[in-house]
């Protein structure tokens, strides 16, 4: 535990050592605002909800989360610091968790900084704050799932651009897997069970369930187990190809 915290602290601090963190946060806030107000029609809905704010989060994460995740391991590999990290008295599990938690905490900070919109909606009307808290929680877990996917893919390469593109693609498939665009590809030949399993992997489906204010344990378990799976995969990948 101690080592995980030390690694996470170092990692999180290095986000803020460069302009990366600030640029990310500014762009994230600008985009969430722009989507909510202009595309989502926050005002024209004349409803005291943050639906128009949260419904674009999967799409924003699709572009922005792989940008955080791409450097997690690819950069360590590129600069050779992975050789320092993995020869310190820490286990691979601790290293993977520490770095992942830093990235997740960072995305949590960016998400938390959207609080003015929550104040705004409370100022303008009487929203169901339970739904809003559930949505924030759902959004945070979804970001965590995207990051875990990105962590694993970043561990496979030393090239950050490749890590970004592949992670964005995999995240896209997970987001879209409930929609016909993806499902039609499988319907022709795969058995019904497979199609339904793929459909059940959809981030959109799970996130919109949470967004309605129904915190179904199954949705949180879905995101948690996805995170666990991809982190486990990251650990395996790091152990297998540390040196190459």
């Amino acid at each position: 535990m101690r080592n995980i915290a030390i690694i996470a602290k170092r990692e999180l601090r290095s986000y803020f050592a460069t302009p990366l963190a600030y640029i990310f946060i500014v762009i994230f806030l600008a985009l969430t605002g722009a989507f909510a107000f202009f595309i989502g029609g926050f005002f024209t809905r004349e409803q005291a909800t943050l639906m128009s704010f949260f419904m674009y989060h999967p799409w924003l994460y699709l572009m922005l989360i792989p940008a955080i995740a791409m450097r997690l391991w690819a950069e360590e590999r590129k600069t050779g610091t992975i050789e320092i990290l993995m020869t310190l008295p820490v286990s691979t599990v601790e290293a993977v968790l520490g770095k992942y938690l830093a990235a997740w905490a960072f995305s949590g900070i960016a998400l938390a900084l959207t609080f003015p919109i929550w104040i705004t909606v409370n100022f303008l009307g009487n929203p169901d704050n339970g739904v809003i808290i559930a949505s924030y929680l759902g959004s945070f877990f979804m970001a965590g799932a995207f990051l875990a996917i990105g962590s694993c893919i970043s561990a496979m390469t030393k090239n950050q651009v490749i890590a970004f593109i592949v992670a964005a693609t995999v995240c896209f498939l997970f987001t879209m897997s409930g929609l016909d665009l993806v499902l039609n590809f499988f319907r022709g030949w795969a058995p019904e069970v497979v199609v339904r399993t793929i459909a059940s992997m959809s981030f959109l489906t799970h996130f919109s369930a949470v967004m309605k204010g129904v915190i179904d344990l199954r949705d949180l378990i879905f995101f948690s187990s996805l995170i666990a799976f991809w982190l486990f995969a990251s650990i395996i990948v790091i152990d297998l190809k540390k040196a190459s």
């Binding site: 290095s14 050592a17 050779g80």
Partner: peptide, 13 residues
């Protein structure tokens, strides 16, 4: 104590 080839370090620290 190990100094890897090229002495890699976290450059932004």
């Amino acid at each position: 104590g190990y100094l890897p080839e090229g002495a890699p370090t976290y450059g932004d620290m």
